[in-house]
């Protein structure tokens, strides 16, 4: 394992492709997700970054936090730019214009850039089978422009464009199941991750990078500013999202689902929603209705794991 050093009592790479001095808000879970993901990139990685918090906080001219080749794209075309870079590398190495070394191309986008605005370019890139890794940092709204709802915003969350009030529960639609849409492209590797589980996250990034073909990782990213939480809660809330079933950790390799952390008993949803201002208007009945749907989706996911694993064993 090159560039792995003993780091305290655990084994973590000292590789820090994302430098400090970036301008993410105090206690941002999304930049932590990006920092940990970047730790798992090797030096032959080209990073393509759609507009959004993670692009803006890392690249205020004349500064840039990235110690890797990095390009800022539009909101909608990160996957298309990544496809182009990957194709160019293929052609250049066929013509012996660059040394024969593996070069990884990674595209990064927020939930807005991924599940709404960039989904067409992303779907195209995956359908064409480009050897790229796409990472979505899901903080469940368009945070950089002031907390507008996206199709990844969870039901009941108050945002500036789905405000809670007398006649509104907040976001009135259920969170889009983006990982499933990616699985439907029959790509070799799809996973969900959360920085509260850093080793799981970094191993998944490594797996995605070493996958031959398209890979997709959806990372749950706590945003204290947009979620109206205290600045020290990003890790706690990420853990609670997993433990309450709000955001299960799983991976799908060639269509076979596997849960990485199975909760025998899901924790009460209110433990997760209470510390967050965006959910503070929800009453007990509304919370239990949301909880019921989360539980049934959790069971459905477990079933998918069993079914696809049986199919593989046959």
């Amino acid at each position: 394992m090159e560039d792995y050093n003993i780091f305290a009592s655990r084994v973590v790479t000292k590789n820090e492709p994302l430098a400090p001095g970036h301008r993410a808000c105090i206690g941002c879970g999304e930049v932590l997700a990006m920092r940990l993901a970047a730790k798992a990139f090797n030096k032959n990685t080209i990073v393509v970054n759609a507009t959004g918090c993670m692009e803006i906080i890392a690249s205020q001219v004349p500064y840039n936090s990235w110690r890797l080749p990095w390009i800022h794209t539009l909101f909608e075309n990160a996957a298309a730019v990544a496809s182009g870079i990957e194709s160019a590398i293929k052609v250049l190495s066929r013509k012996n214009r660059i040394p024969e070394e593996e070069i990884h191309v990674v595209a990064l986008g927020g939930d807005g850039a991924t599940v709404d605005i960039g989904i067409q370019a992303l779907s195209g890139a995956f359908e064409r089978g480009h050897n790229i890794t796409y990472i979505c940092f899901d903080n469940e709204a368009y945070m950089n422009t002031g907390i507008q709802r996206s199709s990844a915003t969870p039901f009941g969350a108050s945002t500036t464009t789905s405000p809670a009030g007398k006649k509104s529960i907040g976001q009135s639609t259920w969170k889009k199941d983006t990982p499933s849409i990616m699985v439907a492209h029959n790509i070799p590797y799809v996973a969900t991750a959360c920085p509260s589980y850093p080793f799981d996250l970094m191993e998944k990034i490594e797996k995605a990078l070493s996958t031959n073909g398209p890979s997709y990782i959806h990372i749950f990213s706590v945003c204290p500013t947009g979620w109206r939480t205290k600045s020290d809660l990003a890790i706690r809330l990420g853990r609670l999202a997993v433990e309450t079933g709000v955001f299960p950790l799983y991976e799908v390799e060639n269509g076979v689902y596997k849960m990485n952390k199975i909760e025998t008993e899901l924790k009460p949803l209110s433990l997760y929603t209470k510390p967050q201002g965006r959910f503070k208007h929800l009453n007990d009945d509304q919370l239990s209705a949301i909880e019921a749907r989360i539980h049934s989706e959790y069971e459905a996911l477990k079933e998918k794991c069993e079914l696809t694993q049986v199919r593989e064993d046959m």
Binding site: P20, G21, H22, R23, S59, Q60, V61, Y63, S65, W70
Partner: peptide
């Protein structure tokens, strides 16, 4: 707007 000193946000005081 190419930045030729990668990771130079280390200079920026937060």
């Amino acid at each position: 707007c190419i930045v030729t000193t990668p990771g130079n946000t280390t200079d920026y005081k937060t």
